[in-house]
Write a protein that binds this DNA or RNA. Structure first.
Length: 797
RNA sequence: GCCUGAGUGGCGAAAUUGGUAGACGCACAGGACUUAAAAUCCUGGGAGGUUCACCCCUCGUGUCGGUUCAAGUCCGACCUUAGGCACCA
């Protein structure tokens, strides 16, 4: 019996030496870019998730290569980021050193998977030759007005001591460490992803992505169509704009509410109310986001003393402030229609504000009526339904200049600066005379200094590094200071797929012609947790670069697959604290990489994942050893066996279809069916032809074992340069077929039909069945449905 | 509350998209080989009923209805569960 583990290392070495997986960009074959999300080089060993993602996707890539595609399949590391820095703070080991070491370990471990990556295209985002171009990206976005700095209330993680993007705040907590995020006013760099909100939303329709993921993005972008309506502040020149999705209820607006942070609040607050307003403002600013947005919290608010004029009826309505209105959404101001909005109703009830119904229906003494109803108390809208009223009001507002139709999004601009060390420095210089000056392209990269004190204290560690901070202004030559913040690592990963095909280009981030040939990525595989982060950011980058003329495609990832999660044997998510982790390494040592890959493919629905079982992996070990035995039963003979041919070609057809769908469990099942039929002939010997087919079929699934056995039957190295077997239709045609005969939808018999049987013959065959007769006798046959080659259903009364 | 998925044997799962539910495998049971075990091979199997046995019958894909000659698949309502969003105006 072969020791799988031993032969695997032998072949991996040889494949590497021979550069078996060398990508040839000049190839005339159709290109296919297969990409797994690259990983962070942590100190820990590869976990089951890595194997599940990389091992299984590799089978797909190998299949495509054997099937005639010019497969581009690179690998690299997302090497900047907090863990290395935190590790450094703890141990004193510099992130550059620990990261390099981790990468080296991971490279070794990855090669043990037996992946068909071409390592000549490897990327490490923390290296100068990469982050130089990350900085270049920043400059290009800056040039285009898509990168800007502004003072704004931002999410700050007190534990990581840095700001976070909205996407990195998971229900009020830091995505990385789980600490409660607080709000801080800080001057920060943003990317204007909101400029692309509409396109990011619309282009989802073009993508072969899971619906789940598309919905997450749609939800996150949060488009909502409504109108801006301008309100004048009574007795002043001030005015403000509210956003509403129901401008048709404008006649029911009985008060307005401003977010407490709005600058306008101070301008309009009457002296009588000043004290109360200030007190409320202070209170509100102290609250965390979770406290503030809790739906269970009772409404609070304060009257400003000022009144607004409702433009449609010139009614004076009071202006309040309340924290239930968010400064960051819409305009930070609303018109309140308490009769038809639950929140406004609650607020109005508490503070005794007027409630005017403008829609028919409901019982306002109990609650707000939020359903649909015909308009009342609404002048020219009376009697209209929602749709008509909206149209009419929109037209009216526009005509009178009171407001206009508009669209808002929940998506906010992407905050990219971080007050941490281990990241790409932002290529910006501050000059007293010239202001904000971008670093000229020729001066890139702005090197990350190595000798830095990086204990985080809420300010960038780079700030304390004089040799870094002090520079001369590129414009006027005077002394100047550098930007001390670094870029979020999500910026690095937003364009890495563009760098791979041209990873060693030192003149530009990529050659335009080359990447337009190899991109977009045809198959992208990774976890769903990146749905509203990496996957959204990368789409934004692609679109922005397209608009700058660098790319001729709109979307980076045409087809996306998420692997599921392999859970611990207890059905819980694997975690060290629960002690339910299953490490790949010991299993690889015991059974080999192919067996582990095989079980990961066979034992789960790839997209669902599921709990690990040891029994499962044993069964694949048995299966591969069975293939080994069958290979030993090889017989030099040209004999063809019809029974085997049928199974072979049927299996081949299914295997192809299933691999296409990332259904490796069923494709493995078909291989098993084929081996089952072969094993019937084990004693008498199996003709070479069938053994070769078996190994070729197996090659993408168990690349090492297939290579070894291929050689053992005297074939030429390497099996991975062979073509994947193709099925022939003629073997799929069944001359005879067993089909079911139903009476009133219940199966009562099966009959064997011939392909050439006419419908009448089939009916005849069905009706003469004993058991069919039993159920039809004495009854009237209403009709007989014959579905060709599938079923007969006799309807009786 | 809103938006997505998911729910099928003891277990992992499959089902040509409306056409014999449970492919393939695990575990299990019986048998063969063996002094014995391991390994391997063969047979069996959704539940219940009937039968010496084969046949056959009833029920069966979370629940309740509906459409259809025919429903795991389509429609409606609901339950459970996972994930996302949530005072978004």
């Amino acid at each position: 019996m072969i020791n799988f583990n031993e032969i695997e290392e032998k072949w991996e070495k040889k494949w590497k030496e021979d550069k078996l997986y060398k990508f040839n960009p000049e190839s005339k074959k159709e290109k296919l870019y297969c990409l797994e999300m690259f990983s962070y080089p942590s100190g820990a060993k590869l976990h089951m998730g890595h194997w599940y993602n990389y091992g299984v996707t590799d089978t797909w890539a190998r299949f495509k290569k054997m099937d005639g595609y010019n497969v581009f399949h690179p690998m690299g590391f997302d090497a900047f980021g907090l863990p290395a820095e935190n590790y450094a703070i703890k141990t004193g080991i510099h992130p550059a050193i620990s990261t390099d070491k981790n990468i080296e370990t991971m490279e070794k471990q990855l090669s043990r998977i037996g992946g068909s990556w071409d390592w000549d295209y490897e990327i490490k985002t923390c290296k100068e030759d990469y982050y130089k171009w990350t900085q270049w990206m920043f400059l290009k976005l800056y040039e285009k007005g898509l990168a800007y700095k502004k003072e704004a209330p931002v999410n700050f993680c007190p534990s990581c001591n840095t700001v976070l993007a909205n996407e990195q705040v998971i229900s009020g907590n830091c995505e990385r460490c789980g600490s409660t995020v607080i709000r801080k006013n800080m001057s920060q760099w943003f990317f204007k992803i909101t400029d692309y909100a509409e396109e990011l939303l619309n282009d989802l329709d073009k993508l072969d992505w899971p619906d789940r993921t598309k919905n997450l993005q749609r939800n996150w972008i949060g488009k909502s169509v409504g109108a801006y309506v301008d309100f004048k502040v009574d007795g002043t020149d001030e005015k403000f704009t509210v956003f509403t999705t129901r401008c048709d209820t404008l006649f029911g607006a009985t008060y307005c509410v401003l977010a407490p942070e709005l600058p306008l609040v101070d301008k309009i607050t009457t002296s009588l109310q000043k004290e109360e307003v200030n007190k409320y403002k202070e209170q509100a600013s102290k609250q965390s986001d979770i406290e503030r947005t809790s739906t269970t919290k009772e409404k609070t608010g304060v009257f400003t003393g000022a009144y607004a004029i409702n433009p449609v009826n010139n009614k004076k309505i009071p202006i309040w402030i309340s924290d239930y209105v968010l400064a960051t959404y819409g305009t930070g101001a609303i018109m309140a229609v308490p009769a038809h909005d639950e929140r406004d109703y609650e607020f109005a009830k508490k503070f005794n504000l007027e409630i005017i119904p403008v829609l028919e229906g409901g019982d306002l003494s109990k609650e707000a009526f939020v359903g649909d109803g015909l308009h009342i108390n609404s002048d020219f809208l009376n009697g209209l339904n929602k749709e008509d009223a909206l149209n009419k009001m929109n037209a009216y507002l526009e005509e009178k200049g009171f407001g206009k139709k508009t669209t808002t999004y929940k998506l906010r601009d992407w905050l990219v600066s971080r007050q941490r060390y281990w990241g790409a420095p932002i290529p910006i210089i501050y000059c007293e005379d010239c202001g904000v000056v971008p670093v000229p392209e020729k001066d890139l990269p702005v090197k990350l200094p190595m000798d830095v004190e990086f204990a985080p204290d809420g300010e960038s560690p780079l700030k304390k590094c004089d040799s870094f901070m002090n520079c001369t202004c590129p414009k006027c030559g005077k002394k100047a200071k550098r930007e001390a913040d670094t870029l979020d690592t999500f910026v690095c990963s937003s364009w890495y797929y563009l760098r791979y095909p041209d990873a060693h280009n030192d003149k530009e981030p990529f050659n335009k012609d080359l990447i337009n040939k190899i991109l977009p990525v045809d198959k992208y595989v990774g976890g769903i947790e990146h749905a509203c982060m990496h996957l959204l950011y990368a789409r934004f980058f692609t679109k922005a670069l397209r608009d700058m003329g660098y790319l001729n495609f709109d979307e980076p990832f045409l087809s996306l697959v998420h692997q599921g999660t392999i859970l611990g044997p207890d059905g819980e998510k694997m975690s060290k604290s629960k002690g339910n982790t299953v490490a790949p390494d010991p299993l690889v040592e015991k059974y080999g990489a192919d067996v582990l890959r095989g079980y990961l493919m066979f034992g789960f629905n790839y997209i669902d994942g599921g709990p690990w079982t040891d029994d499962g992996i044993i069964s694949i070990n048995k299966f591969y050893h069975k293939i080994e035995r069958l290979t030993n039963a090889i017989k030099e003979s040209d004999e063809r066996i019809t029974e085997i041919d049928k199974v072979l070609h049927n299996s081949l057809k299914s295997i192809r279809e299933d691999i296409e769908k990332f259904q490796f469990n069923t494709s493995m099942a078909r291989i098993m069916e084929y081996t089952n039929i072969l094993s019937k002939y084990e004693q008498s010997g199996i003709p070479r032809y069938y053994i070769e087919k078996l190994l070729l079929i197996l090659a993408p699934f168990a690349p090492h074992i297939a290579e070894e056995l291929w050689q053992s039957i005297g074939n030429k190295y390497s099996i991975h340069n062979e073509s994947y077997p193709i099925y022939e239709e003629k073997y799929l045609i069944e001359e005879e077929k067993k089909i079911a005969v139903q009476v009133n939808g219940k199966v009562r018999a099966t009959i064997t039909i011939n392909v050439n049987d006419s419908e009448d013959v089939v009916k005849e065959k069905a009706l003469v069945q004993e058991n069919v007769k039993k159920f039809t006798e004495g009854k009237e046959i209403v009709k007989i449905i014959v579905i060709k080659g599938k079923i007969v259903n006799i309807v009786v009364k």
